[in-house]
Design a protein around this nucleic acid. Sequence first.
RNA 1: GCGCGGUUAGCUUAGUGGUAGAGCGCUACAUUGACACUGUAGAGGUCACAGGUUCGAACCCUGUACCGCGCACCA
Length: 897
Amino acid sequence: MHDLAKAYEPSAVEERLYARWLELTDSYHADEKSVKPAFSIVIPPPNVTGILTMGHVLNNTLQDILCRKARMEGKEVLWLPGTDHAGLATQTKVESTMRKEEKGLTRQMLGREAFEKRVWEWTDKYGGIIIQQLKKLGCSCDWTRQTFTLDAEYSRAVLQAFVDLYNKGHIYRGKRMVNWCPASQTAISDEEVIPTPQKGKLYTIRYEVVEQPGRFLEIATTRPETLMGDTGVAVNPEDPRYAGLAGLHARRPFPEAAIPIVADAHVDVKFGTGVLKVTPAHDKADFEIGQRHNLPFLDVLTPDGKINCPEVPELHGLDRFEARKRSAEMLAERGLLAKEEPYDNTVGFSERGQVPIEPRLSEQWFLRYPKTQDALDVVAREQIKFFPRHWTKTYDHWLTNIQDWCVSRQVWWGHRIPVWYKDGDPASPKCQIASPGEGWVQDLDSLDTWASSWLWAYATMDDATRSKFYPTSVLVTGPDIIFLWVARMIIAGLEFTPGKTKAVEDNIAFENVVFTGIIRDKYGKKMSKQFGNSPDPLDLIAKYGADGLRFGLIRIAPQGEDIRFDEKQVEEGRNFCNKLWNAVRFRTMQGPIDPAADPSQYDPETHELTSFSQLLLHKLHKLLPQIQASFDRFEFSEVASALYDFVWNDFCSRFIEAAKADFQNPESPSRAGTLATLDYTLSRILRLLHPFAPFITDELWVNLGFGGPETAADGTPNANARTIQFAPWPCAEPVPAWVKDLWTTNSAEAVYAMVDAGRNLRGAVNQKVPFHLHLAEGASAPYDYEMPVLTALLNASEVTLALPSDPVPSGPFAFVPLGKLYVTLPKIDPEEERKRIEKDLAKVRKDLESTRKKLGDPNMIARAPADKVAEWRALEPVLAEKERTLLERQDALAGAV
RNA sequence: GCGCGGUUAGCUUAGUGGUAGAGCGCUACAUUGACACUGUAGAGGUCACAGGUUCGAACCCUGUACCGCGCACCA
């Protein structure tokens, strides 16, 4: 027998166990040749140089729960881990470090090759951190298949995908308006622009009509600094105020020029003055107006967001925000600024660069998404199921309004676009992975990182692995990347058909998508490094254990709802682990454990199996299908809560407390049956909890021999003795026939009800006091063996019984299912009791009133279902009797004073 | 403007039509007890608001308010 410490010490267990697991499972290597049914998950790859956040903890714990459960269900499990190169994020991090630590060194100073080498060094140094952290959390990923998006194999798949799409005509290069980040100096996709409310100013400026000197058009703008790029002025063709102006010209103040006035339906007559200055090179809508009216495209900004307009030396070279103020001043000096008023508007910010993006005309690569209709269909037909389902609306909306994807980035860290150029060669450009030869120069741009990770669901697997494990079973991720990643992975699967056949069902990437909530702090703020409100999960693991963190977090994380995180919840998780530990510790004090314990060997009729044991077994077998149903809906917190409640209340507070009567009496005839019930239930509790709390459950399972002997009777080694991880999942076991026969009486419930009522009666009186049960008509007395339990749990000096025909005693009492339970207290505080009676009376009267109202309403009696009416009819006299008895007691109390 | 969530005890929340439930926190009490990472008890709720459907609404419908998120617009 293993001696258990008085409290569970996670740090003493976790590291040792994890190392052991890696040995036992060959690092959780999934066998692609296995005949077991497959279960597979690909990890949402964290940034290679990132560190573990609470979001990762939630997400990866859920995946680990699914994988561990699947193993126990006898499936061959692949949880494929890896990391993402995070092109722009990583490049920015390395650049800023260089700038700080190496006197302003930039990547341009180093050159592309040397810089890439730097980033690889950085990646080698920090790249393993998050993987190590996942191991601390207990994640059972297949570490033999760990993948990085820049691995040679994966890279080839990414580039080949580009080449294929190019050859099919889905990819094109074009000079178009893109979202330009002046801080990172790259294009970004629409999905990476964060609209942010800003307090800005609306400037109303005056443009003179050239052909009608003295007539001025007032134009509202938030961006006077771009007026040098104005190549037109637009009015709505329907607007009577400006009829006849189209075809004339307006005078641009600086650099002074006459620019055409055009009529364009885009202009909203109700907004501002109804006149729009058109800056085709610096605004998406203006770009389109410019195209429609053949206006010139004048770029007056540099890539880093400075004014590029030598003709206006006052502004040339100024930062765009400086230039905004200065140009307003210049307009005012010329009498051309009519108004300047505060204005709230929404400005697109670059997610990475944290600065306003600049709509900018530039040469980029675009993808016309293929298979968008198929992608809509597979989700509509529920070939791919979303949990919660309402996210399908968001998904549908995006896919039906989809824009071409700008896949090129002006960064050096990532997959370089596989397009080659050679001046004067008629074959240029060529799209292929390898260089076509001497003199060919590769495109300078790299691919958007999401254009790498959209192949993650299958390009991480070799052919053999894919034929066993693809499509994957579940994807667990946040709804914030539903477009960036989830939808694109679905499209990639349908377009590249990596499955066993070309059929849609073999190429759906994943069967289920589980969306987690966002973790917020206790004030409701999103957790982020900037706010500093995100605890370090490793600190929490050190303080409360990985199991405590996992269980505490999952218990309060309802599906798809945001989570208000409070460290208290992790503390509760740890406390729960300790409760379990001590319940097992108590068990070890009663003698050796029987891993094959079978309560059905004990006869309930002769009370070898007590009512307490029967009730527990009944509840356990009611719990199992509930847990399975919750898992089927991916309602993890429901499972965790149900287990918490069962273990703490049904198992510890009630059953174990009742069982002490047996254990303290070596002669008890029900001792063996109670022990068997304890072992049988514990064995299942440990297995049910293992996916949530892998360490403590394995530690207890192995040390106490729940897995059975090391070798089976035929001499083969018994794997379940060495670890709980492959022990059979209890919900999958058939319900034993004997369980159905157990539930013949609820006498244990009656005992527990008396315990609750009696404790309430005695209130704060701590010494042992006598109780007296006065049976109601027709109630059967508790079994003899139940009386010591009742006495112990009530902390009673004795519990006496009286028949219905016996005289009714007086004194404080409570209604219980068997009748009335009286207590004899050394001293009765009449004031206290009066309050208690009044409280009971108020409750009874409220119930009685509502029941009588129902019964007195003929309409209700006529229309309510018969069983409900019968219920109310039966309830009424019971309540009335309660009221009468309480009033009697109240009178007696009044008389006594 | 459109869409998706949400609003139940001080806090976090469960609750798909029939007497509002839990955990934390708070208050009081209890340490030869498996567990103070504990036990026992107590206080604490017009279920956001207004209509409607129904014999009956926290629950279904409509609307309103407020909070969060997304999309679009944003001169």
